[in-house]
């Protein structure tokens, strides 16, 4: 091999060769090894915790969904989406690519990013409070905070237990079920804090609605 005399060039060639070696090591071998172990030991979780675990998935347990009534004009991207009273409703979401698919679009995870004193956000929050109160037949003051605020990802699958219990009566009425039975279903889906002190109590709306749909 011809010797390279310019030290500057030699140094850059060494840098390039080292980068390529490290790319093979950390960019190819490492993710492949992790994937191999993940797919062998935790296949369910490595593939997005599908629900149901066996059969045709209708959701990921980790990714929230919209529960709206079918649109009257499916082609119209501007038609307002109306929540379906038969389902527990998730939090508001800013993950909307604006293509008419509506919020909870995992191809467009997003927060609203509106500031703490944004006049539009303050108006939106007040409007949401009135809308949720009317929808769930409760006084506006009792609507919990997660019902009127959009999450950081726009894909939050969880709501607070307070918001879930608030919706139980409306869901029971719309489905013709006994309110106590629906409240019991909610109670079975309340997840405590991790280890008793990490994070917040929550109810996974996707799992709750999935259980609701499977009721006879």
């Amino acid at each position: 091999m011809r010797t390279i005399h310019s030290p500057l060039l030699r140094q850059h060639l060494a840098a390039l060769r080292l980068l390529l070696v490290l790319t093979v090591l950390t960019g190819i071998a490492y993710p492949l090894a992790v994937t191999g172990i993940a797919e062998t030991v935790f296949p369910h979780r490595a593939n997005g915790s599908p629900l149901p675990a066996h059969g045709t998935p209708v959701a990921s347990r980790l990714i929230g969904q919209s529960f709206n009534l079918p649109k009257q004009h499916p082609a119209d991207p501007h038609e307002a989406l109306r929540p379906d009273p038969r389902w527990f409703q998730p939090r508001p979401s800013a993950a909307d690519a604006g293509k008419g698919a509506g919020p909870y679009d995992p191809t467009a995870s997003h927060a609203s990013n509106l500031g703490p004193n944004d006049a539009g956000l303050t108006r939106t929050v007040r409007a949401r409070r009135l809308a949720v109160a009317a929808f769930d037949h409760v006084p506006p003051a009792s609507v919990p905070v997660d019902a009127v605020t959009a999450s950081g990802s726009g894909l939050d699958p969880d709501i607070s237990p307070a918001y879930a219990y608030e919706q139980a009566g409306r869901v029971a009425g719309a489905r013709g079920l006994a309110p106590a039975a629906v409240r019991g279903l909610v109670a079975g889906h309340v997840q405590g804090r991790f280890l008793g002190f990490l994070g917040q109590e929550r109810v996974n709306v996707v799992e709750l609605n999935h259980a609701l749909a499977r009721r006879p």
Binding site: T122, A150, G199
Partner: peptide, 15 residues
């Protein structure tokens, strides 16, 4: 916005 919502949950995840 925080006072209207009853807390600083905008942009934060429930979990």
């Amino acid at each position: 916005a925080g006072h209207a919502a009853g807390g600083m949950a905008e942009g934060k995840e429930q979990r």
